[in-house]
Structure formats: C-alpha cells, structure tokens
Amino acid sequence: MKMLATFNVNGRDRDTVIAPHMTLADVLRDQLRLTGTKRACTGGNCGACTVLMDGVPVCSCIQLAVNARDRKIETVEGLAKPGGDLSALQEAFARNNAAQCGFCTSGMLMTAEALLRSNPRPTREEVKVAISGNICRCTGYVKIVDAIMEATAAAQEAAE
C-alpha cells in the first residue's frame, strides 16, 4: 500500500514514497537521508529520535509517517543558522562537552529547543523536567543541563 507523501521538513517540502507501516524516524533516515535523527529504543522510551512536529517534541520512532504528512517537522539538521553557523544551543553543547558519544544528542537538542522556544528563561529544574524523558548513557546529564542553561535567554543576555 505505497503512497506518495509530502513532508515539510526544516521548512522545505520533500516528496517521497511511503507505506502506512513506516515510522517517521525510518522515513526521515532511510528515505530523506536525514540521519541525524537516531533510533535507539524504537519504543518511545528514550527520546533519541525526538523531532519537533508543529513545534512540540515527539518520538519519531513510534510516530507513523502517514500521520506526519501536513505537519511541520523539524530535525537536528535544521537547527543551525542559515549559512551553517551553530545555533546558540548547539554552541553551548559543544562548549560544555554535552555530547559524548553523540547518539542521544540530536534528541536532547530538539527537546531543549522546544523548551527554550516556549520558555526562554527556564530554571534548572524546568530544564531537567523537560529532558527527563531523554536518556543519555555517557554524560551523567550535568553538562547537558549546564549547556541548556547557557543557551537560555537570560544567559545569552548576560553574556552580551
């Protein structure tokens, strides 16, 4: 049961052929070759596959692609500024060594991105709650929270 589907990914419409049993993560990775989104548990339990759908974080590994048509999808590949410079959040992750093996990083970044858009001045505790569903096995989370805090509006203003 193949169908032609259009996905709006990172602001661009992309056409591809899908079947209803394909997940959004698999279509992004295998068909659209946006491999920054990772499959780690494929059960909606770890956050590694997080993408934004209409601005909110979802687990793309359990999201049927067919239900993601007509939605605005954002992946890690869309985070950098036009021209390729890293966003403030990405810079903060790099500066704090908040990415070790890097496999959870895309999901962490997308989850944090959604938080900072809806709450540009979160407390440390709010950051923790936001990423509480993103599992990282390397960092012990401290540097990730540090990085997100450095990317908040408050920290950015203080740095200026």
């Binding site: 909606g44 339990n45 770890c46 956050g47 979802v58 687990c59 999201q63 509480s132 569903g133 993103n134």
Partner: peptide, 9 residues
C-alpha cells in the same frame, strides 16, 4: 507521563 514527549502524541 514518561517520557514527556508521549504527552504530545
């Protein structure tokens, strides 16, 4: 709900 993302889906 765990993870919080599930609440969006």
């Amino acid at each position: 709900l765990y993870p919080p993302h599930i609440g969006n889906m």
